[in-house]
């Protein structure tokens, strides 16, 4: 009997653990990475590997020497952070800057708060926004998606969102901008990823395939991404209906920029999203509204990163007030 285990019930465990969940997220990001490598070539590979390696190393060093605790890099969460950070960077970014971004993401975004599970903001987004504000030129000079072999010194170009924003700022209408840049506004190209942008955000289709995989593996629930999509569609649609000359149609919003990447992979980050279904829906609506406000009225062409960080700050409040419906809860009269 001396080798028998004793513990309170339950005596069996489900299959999912932190490591397997993180592995599933990594797998789900692979199609988008493949598309990115196809279009941006070596740039993607270098940036991605640098980000992952520096994130993992940074977490390991901090845990080993600063916090003097057992390093937990085996849970793969640092790899996910690195991968998502890389997805948010242009593929021609200098590796040194990538390292800097990773250090900020892990060091400031995650470990200062006590590591995995305690950070209020999505670490990868902290890294990205830090980079965006500190190095605006490098962060918004995207290479054109030309193909694997021709891409080392590829020409750079703006994203559809940036072209649109600049055009509108110059007093052009949506129709004029679209007519002036026919290459940049093909929805089919956006679906497959042949557009300018950060290395992981370009292919809507690949990201949606990953979404399907995450749902199938029950890693995330549909609530956050679908509410974000729906909110953006409705809100942008209303604006478009009201003034189609100055507000672009909702499909354009959904297909460009980081909405897919943000809604599916960053807003659903466990640690920084609400705990209840009701809360998730509110969180998603908030992100959708803030994103479109920034895109349509703000100074930046892209707003999802800021929107997610902004709503991250509300998560504790949402958790406090959005309680699940208790079993047997009796509605009070009225």
């Amino acid at each position: 009997m001396s080798n028998m285990r004793i513990s309170p019930a339950p005596h069996i465990q489900g299959k999912q653990n932190t490591r397997s969940l993180m592995r599933d997220v990594i797998i789900a990001l692979m199609p988008a990475l493949a598309v990115s490598i196809c279009f941006f070539g070596w740039g993607t590979i270098i940036v991605t590997l640098t980000a992952i390696l520096s994130c993992v190393l940074c977490e390991w060093l901090i845990q080993k020497f600063l916090l003097k605790e057992e390093p937990s890099i085996k849970d793969l969460s640092a790899i996910v952070t690195g991968l998502i950070l890389a997805f948010n960077l242009p593929s021609n970014l200098s590796p040194l800057l990538v390292v800097l971004g990773s250090v900020v993401a892990i060091g400031v975004g995650k470990m200062t708060f006590g590591g995995l599970g305690n950070n209020p903001f999505n670490p990868a987004l902290v890294g990205r926004v830090f980079m965006l504000i500190s190095f605006p030129v490098q962060m918004t000079t995207w290479p054109k998606p030309t193909g694997f072999f021709t891409s080392i010194d590829a020409v750079t170009g703006a994203t559809p969102l940036a072209i649109m924003k600049e055009g509108l700022a110059n007093g052009m209408t949506v129709q004029e901008i679209t007519a002036a840049n026919p290459d940049s506004f093909s929805y089919i190209q956006m679906l497959f990823g042949q557009i300018g942008g950060s290395l992981g955000e370009i292919s809507t289709l690949a990201l949606l395939i990953g979404f399907g995989y995450l749902l199938f593996r029950k890693v995330i629930t549909w609530h956050i991404p679908i509410t974000i999509f729906a909110t953006i569609f409705v809100f942008a649609g209303l604006l478009h209906l009201a003034d189609s000359a100055h507000f672009v149609d909702p499909l354009f919003h959904l297909l460009t920029g980081g909405i897919m990447l943000g809604a599916i992979y960053m807003a659903t980050d466990y640690v920084t999203s609400p705990m209840t279904k009701k809360g998730m829906v509110i969180f998603g609506i908030g992100i959708g509204v803030v994103t479109i406000i920034i895109r349509a009225f703000g100074g930046y062409p892209e707003g999802i990163s800021f929107a997610i960080l902004f709503m991250n700050a509300f998560v504790p409040l949402i958790n406090r007030h959005m309680k699940p419906k208790r079993f047997g809860e009796v509605k009070k009269n009225g």
Partner: peptide
């Protein structure tokens, strides 16, 4: 000598 391996929450009360 120990007669079993306790595998539950690390709390005397539990």
């Amino acid at each position: 000598p120990r007669t079993s391996i306790y595998d539950g929450a690390q709390s005397c009360a539990v």
